[in-house]
């Protein structure tokens, strides 16, 4: 057993180490992703069947996800549990989030994806997530009027009070439409990716021409009006 554990840990370590390398990870940096990798333990209870969707976890008779000891996993107990499984599929998002301020300030997946996650099991969370995910992305992007403000407050404004205040006043973020009428409020996630909220860098448009680059060219595109009538 000891030999197996050793082999497993070595493998896990190697896995994390290599997968982290191209992302510019320093091996010394202890991130949540690393911690999770180390937490992965094999099953010891033979009554459980390994979960197909959640490698490393098991499904008990009731269809609830459990750990190797058969304990039902609740989000309130292990807030990083999502990453454990979704790391592979959403590596980019997870890595970006892990580097972001949201990670440092412990704004975890369930904050947005899980809705009210206190005490809910993974199965419940999964169902919740499906609706919530839709709720955020679609409702937030499509909503109009006061609903937008509510959503912006619920998801972002609770922490970012100052930004929310400015945004509501139209000073932070973008607004389009009419300065004296109907405006479209650009909700937070239209500009900020919640997994990596820092505003993205982008490619600038070309620089203006220098005065000595503005030169006389023999007229070729000169458009002379009224060609038809020859006036």
């Amino acid at each position: 057993m000891i030999a197996f554990r050793f082999a497993y840990l070595s493998f896990a370590f190697l896995l994390v180490f290599t997968s982290a390398l191209p992302c510019g990870y320093s091996a010394a940096e202890s991130s949540i992703v690393d911690e999770i990798a180390e937490e992965q333990l094999p099953a010891s209870d033979d009554n459980l069947t390994p979960s197909k969707d959640h490698p490393g976890l098991f499904v008990n008779g009731q269809g609830e996800l459990v750990d190797d000891l058969g304990t039902i996993i609740r989000l309130s107990e292990n807030k990083n549990i999502c990453i454990k499984c979704h790391y592979g599929k959403h590596e980019k998002i997870v890595v970006a989030w892990d580097k972001s301020k949201h990670s440092r300030k412990k704004v975890l997946c369930i904050k947005c994806h899980g809705g009210n996650s206190e005490g809910s099991t993974l199965k419940e969370a999964k169902d919740e997530t499906k609706t919530n995910f839709k709720h955020i992305k679609e409702s937030m992007l499509k909503a109009t009027g006061d609903v937008v403000k509510e959503l912006a407050f619920d998801y972002c404004g609770q922490c970012h009070g100052d930004k929310y205040r400015d945004w509501e006043a139209g000073i932070h973020g973008k607004r389009t439409g009419f300065w004296n009428g109907e405006k479209e409020y650009w909700v937070c996630i239209r500009c900020h990716d919640p997994h990596n909220p820092k505003f993205k860098k982008r490619v600038p448009k070309p620089r203006p021409l220098k005065p000595d680059e503005i030169v006389f060219k023999k007229p070729q595109n000169v458009v002379v009006k009224n060609i038809k009538s020859g006036k």
Binding site: P211, D212, I214, V215, F216, P219
Partner: peptide
Amino acid sequence: RNGFIVTGIRDQV
């Protein structure tokens, strides 16, 4: 015929 583009004058000067 061609405008001030044939001179050295630009917006800066």
